Simulated assay, not measured.
Amino acid sequence: MTPKISIGIVGGAGYTGGELIRLLINHPYANITFIHSRSNAGKPVSSIHQDLVGETPLTFAAELSNDIDVLFLCVGHGEARKFLQENTIAPNVKIIDLSQDFRLQPNTTIDNRSFVYGLPELNKEAIRKANNIANPGCFATAIQLGLLPLAKAGLLEHVHTTGITGSTGAGQGLSTTSHFSWRANNIQAYKTLTHQHVKEISQSLKQLQSGFGEADASGKTTSELNFIPWRGDFTRGIFISSQIDCDLSETELQAMYEDFYQDAPFTVISKEPVFLKQAVNNNKCVIQLEKVGSKLVVHSVIDNLLKGASGQAVQNMNLIFGLDECAGLRLKANYF
């Protein structure tokens, strides 16, 4: 019998923490030892995540414990590095960080810990050997999975990407643009060409296509990602459309993508038009290729809280501990 993994969670009261709890209480090889939250210490987890009533007796803890195998950090950007600076985590405890604090070179280390970028479709073997994982961003995951096969073939030049995300992508803290009265019947572009995930995406594409995003000797950039994100009138999910110039036929491209993702259980290549509900409430990324003349458009859809956050974090945990990559992640799409 496979022994259960002992798990600690820091930041369990937010969206990603809640999704992580929902996954792990039903994971066959997981046992949650503590869920840390100073502001909710002593309260039942189901008093905050009210859909979990009757599902778990766990309460939020004020104290940390090193009697665990892995620690998930579900805290805000900038808070994970601060947390590790202020708290002593035993060297044998593995860490999976869901913030952006350790994703970008050269800032992937702290003390004696070095973080591996946790996109399984790109770094699976490195993840299996890792002790610390920097979980990818949600937009970054959806865009990268749509572009990685093209980067491996050296086909990326100027990429024009548009993506729309639901209100949960903004986190649980209240803001004007997360209020129902603002979101309802409304769409808005934001962080045009400046979104923080662009650097993360470019770093990964450069792993497969040398020089992506860099200027040549004349100072001209021959390959780059131009990304415009949108806020949408729905709660969860991301829909991405990336456009490039490409001379390959749709048949050749389809074969390229299927070959690249043949060992990726959660990345699916569809020959039919994709839509958001195919990915909501599960850990899949569904990709569709459309070729019109010399233009290629790659559509990719994910759930921002699962494949874009907590689901991918559990996928990384499975890989680190030598489990079935899909353990605890066989989820039903929210189709209706």
Rank of each mutant, 00 (worst) to 15 (best):
T56I: 12
D67F: 15
T33M: 15
F60M: 04
L58S: 05
L23C: 08
S37I: 03
V45A: 10
L24Y: 04
I68K: 03
I35Q: 04
N31V: 12
E55S: 15
I25D: 06
I48G: 01
T59R: 11
S47V: 01
T59Q: 11
P28T: 03
T33Y: 13
N66C: 11
S39G: 04
D69G: 07
A62Y: 04
S46D: 08
A30G: 06
L71V: 04
S65Q: 11
H49D: 01
I68M: 07
I68N: 05
H36T: 06
P44W: 10
S47A: 13
L58K: 09
P28R: 04
G42R: 03
N31S: 15
H27E: 01
P28F: 00
F72T: 01
A61W: 08
H36S: 11
L24W: 03
L20W: 07
H49C: 00
L52S: 06
R38C: 10
N66V: 10
P44G: 11
I48M: 04
V53Y: 07
P57R: 08
K43W: 08
R22I: 09
H36I: 10
N31F: 14
P57H: 09
G54N: 01
A62S: 12
I35M: 09
A41D: 00
R38H: 12
I35F: 13
Q50K: 14
L64T: 02
S46L: 06
A30C: 07
H49S: 01
I48R: 03
L58H: 15
T59P: 10
N31Y: 10
V70R: 05
T56F: 09
Q50L: 07
I68A: 03
R22K: 15
H49F: 04
V70M: 08
S37G: 05
H36F: 13
D69H: 10
I68P: 09
S47F: 05
V45M: 08
A41L: 04
T59N: 12
R22D: 15
L64G: 05
S39T: 11
N26E: 14
S47H: 08
P44H: 13
K43Q: 10
I35S: 07
N40H: 14
I68T: 05
A30F: 08
N40R: 13
G42E: 02
E63A: 13
E55L: 15
I25A: 06
I32H: 05
T56L: 09
F72G: 00
N26I: 01
N31M: 14
N40E: 11
D67G: 11
H27I: 01
I68H: 04
V70L: 09
A41F: 03
L24H: 02
L24E: 06
A62D: 10
G54Y: 02
T59C: 14
L64P: 00
E63I: 02
N40P: 02
L52C: 03
I32G: 02
H27W: 03
Y29P: 07
L23P: 09
F60A: 00
P57N: 13
V45S: 06
D51K: 08
R22P: 00
D51W: 00
G42F: 07
S65M: 11
V70N: 04
D67Y: 15
D51S: 10
G42Q: 02
R38I: 13
F72Y: 12
V53S: 13
L64M: 13
P28W: 01
G42I: 04
L24A: 05
S65P: 11
R38D: 12
H36P: 12
Q50W: 05
I32P: 05
H49R: 03
T33E: 15
K43R: 13
P44A: 14
L71N: 03
T33C: 15
